[in-house]
Design a protein around this nucleic acid. Sequence first.
RNA 1: GCUGGAAUCGUCUAGUGGCAAUGACAAGAGACUGUAAAUCUCUCGGCUUCGGCCUUCGUAGGUUCGAGUCCUACUUCCAGCA
Length: 423
Amino acid sequence: MLKFDIEKQDGLMRAGIIHTPHGDIKTPCFVGAATRATVKALTMKEMRELGSQAILANTYHLLLAPGTDLIKEAGGLAEFASWHGPTFTDSGGFQIFSLPDVKITEEGAKFKSHINGDKFEMTPESSMRAQWAIGADIHMAFDHLAKSDSHEDMEEAMARTHRWLDRCIEEHSRLGAGIVSTCSKGHDKLSAKNRQFEIVCDNGSKLASEPRNDGRERSGSRTVCLSAPTEQYLYAVVQGGTFLDLRQKAAEHCATKAVDGFGIGGVFTADGMDEMLRVVNSILPNEKPRHLLGMGQEPIDLFVGAEHGCDTFDCVAPTRMARNGSLYTLDGRINIKNAKFRNDFTALMPECECECCKNYSRAYLHHLFKTDEITAKVLASIHNEYFVVSTVDKIRSSILDGTFKEYKQEFLTRYYKNHTPAK
RNA sequence: GCUGGAAUCGUCUAGUGGCAAUGACAAGAGACUGUAAAUCUCUCGGCUUCGGCCUUCGUAGGUUCGAGUCCUACUUCCAGCA
């Protein structure tokens, strides 16, 4: 079971430490979105220097390239990407269900690669195998995303997600016990030794064979070395959109399951998120960590999330917006490409301690963006990622010293003084 | 000097009798939340009571119901020949 220590609790809100095999995560924490095993435009060194504690990669993307077996061969995600810290993987559900033609059956989802049209199938079991191969510390259950925001579709998706959750848990624990299917020599019983995940075939070989875990529709198997010691953990995903009755059902269902923590499917509206999180997190067991999936473009999401008991967050927006020239400041987001910054020689955000703000002016950033220099995206990404990571770090400090309410009030009043959060 | 060719919205460009005029870039602005995103959208002659009105395709004339498009002259540029 994933170890999670709560240092301070105030209602639903808490500060704690998640202990993963690759290190501790002090929570609340903003997890960097490293979809394809990289945080776009940033090196892992830069990520460490800006204070990032953990990254989240995506099973769907890594399945398409470079393939999950290759990541396993490289020694796992943290090693492959030279991150050497705590890692998460999202199951791939969110991406697969956003593809144009997906065929969903009770068994799983059939889809085509958005890159070259290759056919893939992903099931709860294959998602678990893929995530084990990728080797992230924390995995998400393979969930079924609703095709619309209607109550009916949400409920159907949730019900399937719950049925799939049991299969995820079963496969996850099977993999955790080191049990895989037929080996290349025809032996069909393989056993693990001590949770070290060292697989020994009946014939004594330490090289075990396992089904391809990249979801490709192929028969046969390949031989891989499974001797790397590892512990990996599974989060159930709580769905339900903005419907409180569904959220309640989902939370009640997931709360009873043998999982290490919970992913909470985000809702991309500021309205109602606090109520939704209050319902969900009042039901989920307090002692297990919760990850709010995909939220963090608007700082208010992070404050509301932490206030209602979410421990980790991930979001692509900070780096994506950085690449597009939309940069966070304490007074709200600015578009650095606007003509008014052409000769603004002040720091992007004078109060900011990041590499970008300590060294470069708005005019310089404006120039880099207007001339489409790669460095524009690098510096902007450093800043935006730092802004969000450090904001959540400050939320943590404020929880620990009992000043969260004041910090929240002060931050949000200033940030949203001239505009309202995106709908 | 002669003979061809060319001049279009900041730039390059489409257009060969119905045109406020094509496309790209530049410029101006907006969007982005478990990343098919270094992406996408809008504006881009002036005015407008949103129906239009006015001024535009080197300059000046002409032909025509109608000219960026045809004719004449001029100006500038390019190429070839002297």
